[in-house]
Design a protein around this nucleic acid. Structure first.
Lengths: 136, 136
DNA sequence: CTGCATGCAAACCGTTTGCATCCCC
DNA sequence: GGGGATGCAAACGGTTTGCATGCAG
């Protein structure tokens, strides 16, 4: 986010959190990760999960994503790629499209903000929730 | 958001909130609006502001925007247009670019979610915060 | 007149933080 | 050995909600 990626100490909890996030493509919340990680380390604390997710995303090792909803979500894939969020159940997925447009330099033409990043997020209804709708 | 826009009762507080939001291009938070509106109606409550913003955005009369940061922001312009958020001070502005791309139908090609909306948000540094940086 | 809306204050819930202790480098 | 990291629990801050009363239609 701010360019500098300090060398970070690899504690046991940090490693477990990073491993858990890397294994999964669901863009979990801090709380999700807390429960995922408790299998491996029963006494880890929620605070530690929050602190590490913050630190890892500051270091540019993971990415914090903001798709609406009340909770922040995390992604081990740090590339800038679009996400969809289900407006019924909140589930978030990657979207495998790429728009061959340099959003940031185009945007830069029309503003006096210095542009440093962007995100493209979609809203939708996931397959599971579509079925529920059909049965109504 | 979900298509149906019921006829809504126009209470005094509702009108004042809507007026205040319409007059302004700053994408205020609920709290911002609460203070803006207290000039007109000293005893309005924060809860009322929240309830009305929710109701108005459900009715499609205003738009709730989610640009990162901890607070939700609101926009009287319901069209889908990009925003920039200053990563230093949190200020949010409209961006006057249009990408001639139909994001939603392109995205629809590559997912089994049913796409219903999108948002394109930029991160940057606003002119004021750029000056501060230069003076350091 | 009736049911939605309001003011108020307490509850909620995701996240952050202070502190004593721990442990990675 | 020392400074960052942890566990724990309390604090925080934005938002929501229950309840008695008010007011728009």
């Amino acid at each position: 986010m701010n360019g500098d990626s300090p060398i970070i100490r690899m504690t046991k909890q940090r490693k477990i959190i990073l491993d858990a996030l890397s294994k999964v493509k669901t863009h979990p919340t801090a709380d999700d990760l807390y429960y995922m990680v408790r299998d491996k380390m029963a006494k880890i604390s929620l605070g530690t999960v929050y602190r590490n997710l913050e630190l890892l995303s500051d270091a540019g090792i993971i990415q914090k994503i903001n798709v609406g909803g009340t909770q922040k979500r995390f992604d081990a894939d740090t590339s800038s790629h679009p996400h969809v969020r289900c407006q019924e159940c909140g589930k978030v997925a990657d979207l495998d499209v790429s728009f061959n447009t340099d959003f940031e330099s185009e945007a830069q033409q029309s503003t006096d903000y210095r542009i440093t990043g962007h995100s493209l997020e979609f809203r939708g209804v996931c397959p599971g929730c579509q079925k529920v709708e059909d049965n109504q």
